[in-house]
């Protein structure tokens, strides 16, 4: 009696749906593949992976260059990308903690490898002592925006080359090494040029919106003396803004910087009232039209500095 009933509609329905699900789940990965499918969290890593991998890789970034990488949403359509990838390259230091775990879990891709590229980076602003959200949305491992110092570019490229080689036959490793060398050589040629062009502003004191450009400031020899955000991720209060404007006046700070995904009105108004220059900068490759690779990013930033800041 029971057996008969249990084999009735709901069981049949369940079995049919399970069978349908199994049939629909055709393997998504080819047996023999020539190109490594790489997904990166930000376009900067994609640009470097393209430079190092050349035609041996297929690279796509999840975040866009004009998007705040902290607040990317874990859209199911991104899961489709991670489900078909071989390798996910991410910044690490908890930058992507709010969204990347869901894209990895949802990928249902047991062969997917992941790699943070922060190894060997001299992290800035690593909190000392107590780590607590009382101090805002801080990153216990330090400031994660390290790609904004071009001197970190070759470290990132080295890591990427190592990870790509794990997915490629030995016969192709020579090409990866050649690409890596070419990328590093180009970077070594460009870095002194950028340093020279930024030299007039060495020692500049700036007010920054978020701790986004800390690594660029370190490269340019600038000092971010204050932040418009009261604490990381915490919008400024009117009292904080008033204090900031007073400090800018008394210490002669003439530059406010913010990234292009921040509403320019608040930093713009602060700069205007303090008689300072408001410099809006892209924080990633593809962040503005014409920034197609890692070199373009610094060309654009350095040119913006030259065009916007008063000569010294």
């Amino acid at each position: 009696m029971r057996i008969e009933r249990l084999s009735m509609p709901h069981t049949r329905f369940a079995m049919t749906t399970v069978a349908a699900a199994l049939m629909l789940a055709a393997p998504t990965r080819g047996a023999a593949q020539e190109r490594v499918r790489v997904i990166t969290t930000i376009p900067d890593l994609a640009a470097i992976a393209k430079a190092v991998g050349g035609d041996l890789v297929e690279v796509e970034s999840i975040a866009r260059g004009y998007q705040d990488p902290h607040y990317v949403e874990a859209k199911p359509s991104y899961v489709v990308k991670t489900s078909r990838a071989d390798l996910v390259l991410y910044v690490g230091m908890q930058l992507e903690i709010g969204w990347l775990p869901l894209l990895l879990q949802g990928s249902r891709n047991p062969d997917l490898q992941t790699a943070a590229l922060s190894e060997g980076i001299d992290a800035l602003q690593v909190p000392e002592g107590e780590v607590s959200r009382r101090f805002g949305d801080i990153h216990p491992e330090g400031n994660p925006h390290y790609w904004l110092d071009p001197r970190n570019g070759s470290k990132i490229a080295n890591h990427i080359a190592t990870h790509l080689k794990e997915h490629l036959p030995g016969t192709t490793h020579g090409r990866i090494d050649e690409n890596l060398q070419a990328f590093t050589a180009e970077l070594e040629r460009r870095i002194p040029e950028w340093e020279l062009r930024l030299a007039p502003w060495r020692g500049l004191k700036v007010v920054a919106y978020h701790q986004q450009f800390e690594y660029f400031c370190a490269f340019a020899g600038w000092e971010a003396v204050e932040y418009i955000e009261e604490k990381p991720g915490v919008p400024p209060s009117p009292r904080h803004i008033a204090e900031l404007e007073r400090k800018m006046g008394s210490e002669g700070i003439g530059t406010v910087i913010s990234s292009n995904f921040i509403d320019p009105r608040i930093p713009g108004r602060i700069a205007e009232r303090a008689g300072a220059v408001h410099l809006v900068l892209p924080a990633s490759v593809e962040g503005e039209r014409g920034i197609d690779d890692y070199f373009d990013l610094f060309d654009y930033i350095v040119t913006s500095v030259e065009e916007s800041l008063p000569g010294r």
Partner: peptide, 19 residues
């Protein structure tokens, strides 16, 4: 049918894991 997961970190622990 399952194999040990290789959704593994090769350089650092996955972002959801603490240090």
């Amino acid at each position: 049918a399952s194999r040990p997961s290789s959704v593994r970190a090769t350089a650092q622990s996955p972002p959801e894991q603490g240090q």
